[in-house]
């Protein structure tokens, strides 16, 4: 693989790892593992852990996919591999 393509691929993998870490954090860590601890805090009428499990994680998922799209759009242009 060419050098620049290796750098492109590495940047892509970095984005993925960061975004998937957030994905796991809001759903598995906030929504499941520490749900009872977070429920001590409140967001309006929502216990916080419950809110992450039934609402918040879904909003974050949507944002993560948008972020990946925007990041990759920029990266594709930078490495001149866009369509």
């Amino acid at each position: 693989m060419e050098k620049s393509m290796q750098r492109y691929w590495k940047a892509n993998l970095t984005y993925m790892v960061v975004l998937l870490s957030i994905w796991a954090l809001v759903s598995y860590v906030f929504g499941i593992i520490f749900v009872n601890e977070l429920n001590a805090f409140h967001l309006g009428g929502f216990p916080l852990g419950f809110w992450f499990a039934q609402q918040g994680s879904i909003f974050v998922f949507v944002i993560l996919i948008l972020a990946y799209f925007l990041l990759m759009d920029r990266l594709d242009k930078k490495f001149d591999v866009h369509e």
Binding site: L20, I32, F50, L64, I65
Partner: peptide, 25 residues
Amino acid sequence: IAFMGYAGCMYLMGWTGGYVLLALL
């Protein structure tokens, strides 16, 4: 979900979170 309460989250997160995997992987 109405009858499960909290545990209904497994359907909510499970059937949406997969799209992050789809979009990224």
